[in-house]
Design a binder for these strands. Sequence first.
DNA 1: AAATGTGTCATCATACTTGTTGACACCTGG
DNA 2: CCAGGTGTCAACAAGTATGATGACACATTT
Lengths: 66, 66
Amino acid sequence: MSRKLGKRIVLLREKKGWSQAELARVCLKDRQSIERLERGTTNPTAYTLYEVASALEITLAELLKI
Amino acid sequence: MSRKLGKRIVLLREKKGWSQAELARVCLKDRQSIERLERGTTNPTAYTLYEVASALEITLAELLKI
DNA sequence: AAATGTGTCATCATACTTGTTGACACCTGG
DNA sequence: CCAGGTGTCAACAAGTATGATGACACATTT
């Protein structure tokens, strides 16, 4: 499930033409944190997902369409 | 944000006519864990939300419409 | 009155996420 | 060639979610 979520984040990030570093910058997060999220090696918290969704300018529900 | 999410869980749970204990049972979770979630005192993980959504027989996106 | 169901709260140990730092291989542009 | 961007991986400290247990007040039921 984390894997699928990660793939969706990659998809939405690339749709904006951003690199992991760029998304991290907008999220005020670390480049490595984004990378872990996208690889699906962690089980992120709701707030982390909210921050990513906000950075991607979408809703949480939109991000979670997995 | 956790507060709003908690209120949504309460709403969806009551829509099914369930008590916290009943939702917990279906989730294979502790009654107190559900209560913390609903009060918004924790920042739940994606997997926890997935388990709750599954118990409520809705999608994660549906649960996260907050 | 007593028992049960309900929501709430606190505390504990364990496991995990997160931010951080450092590192590596790969590719592309100067 | 080489400097920079890219994605990946590992390990650490600090903070936190989770499951568990126990407790409390309130309402409803028997």
